[in-house]
Design a protein around this nucleic acid. Sequence first.
DNA 1: GAAATATGTTGACAATCGCAACATTGCGGC
DNA 2: GCCGCAATGTTGCGATTGTCAACATATTTC
Lengths: 200, 200
Amino acid sequence: MPRSKPYHHGNLRECLLAAGVEMIAEAGPSGFNLREVARRAGVSHNAPYRHFRDKEELLAEVAAQGFRELNAAMLEDAATESTPLGKLKRAGYAYVAFALRRPEHFAAMFDAPALDTNPACNQAGAEAFATLVGFITLCQQEGQMPEGETEGKTLFAWSLVHGIAKLAVTNRLPFRSPDRILQFAISAIDSSIKSLRDAN
Amino acid sequence: MPRSKPYHHGNLRECLLAAGVEMIAEAGPSGFNLREVARRAGVSHNAPYRHFRDKEELLAEVAAQGFRELNAAMLEDAATESTPLGKLKRAGYAYVAFALRRPEHFAAMFDAPALDTNPACNQAGAEAFATLVGFITLCQQEGQMPEGETEGKTLFAWSLVHGIAKLAVTNRLPFRSPDRILQFAISAIDSSIKSLRDAN
DNA sequence: GAAATATGTTGACAATCGCAACATTGCGGC
DNA sequence: GCCGCAATGTTGCGATTGTCAACATATTTC
């Protein structure tokens, strides 16, 4: 049995991450603090420094975890559709739905400054992006979208859903319920996909 | 001369706001702190509390100032075009350009939690939104866009440019220079406007 | 079994937010 | 012209937090 359990606590690193995810969900990026995370994990306020360089690094790992969940949600939702275009739409829907479901976590994934310098976070983010690229490539291969400019098309789609998600999460959209927001998201995604199909 | 100058400092409130704007530009929302703002204004660390309830309120006013600048930039840029569609495109361009020019200020305007509860900030934000609504209405009146759904169309356009701006500012777009980003923004805006013109 | 290393703890310091108490300045009523 | 009062600014304080340094303890390695 190679390295089954670390030293004292058991596996403090994972516990801290879990506590961090929990705390982000409750307090958001501004209320997030190392000492409380340590408290929740039942260790002293300095124990986290054995596993993370500083608060920022722990937060970045929490964000990375968010990207993985987002990616999983997109893949799962897309799997319920059979056509490439259907999958793409569903992935966009899942993106917005994730933001609505975990607003604080979503904020932690994108708002933190210099977050793009963390390897784990970048990796996880790139995988989520790759999922979108994959769906668009699929659309192109099956003739449901013009060839070429795959990256540009993906960035266009991503920008739209990201904008919707961000505005929704910061309460900038004039809809009262999450359902109305998702409804708007669907119609916006539909419109944008039309423009992706027609133009180049 | 009615109330030309307040009491001791002169007009501390305005000074604090200016210092706040300056500080946001340099340190961003996370590095922003009341005491440094007070220092820059040359007053004690508690003087700001006579003009703002707390740090959050000062930040909200700084954000409101940002919305006014953003709005002015959109109006100014749009004025260089004569057609309604041209104005709309230019406004979107100005939106992204503003975010690139003042990334920290842009972040302060949208990332701060519970920022939507501040009246001044809401007011300024609503005015910027109204500018967009105005351009789209104009497009509809001049027959360059189908009638109806004005708000929905505006939200669609806003979401797109906001997404581009946010992703750009957080370094998520694979472009190296601001110029390349703006170039992408223009093509994305063009695509989206096509879909607004064609579909409903 | 002992040395080295990984992990966790205690204590300290500086910075920050915001409160409370105090000082000063300008205004209105007489 | 003078005095009380409210507006404005200051000093001092406690609580919280991030992070460093020194110390303690458990695990692995030889």
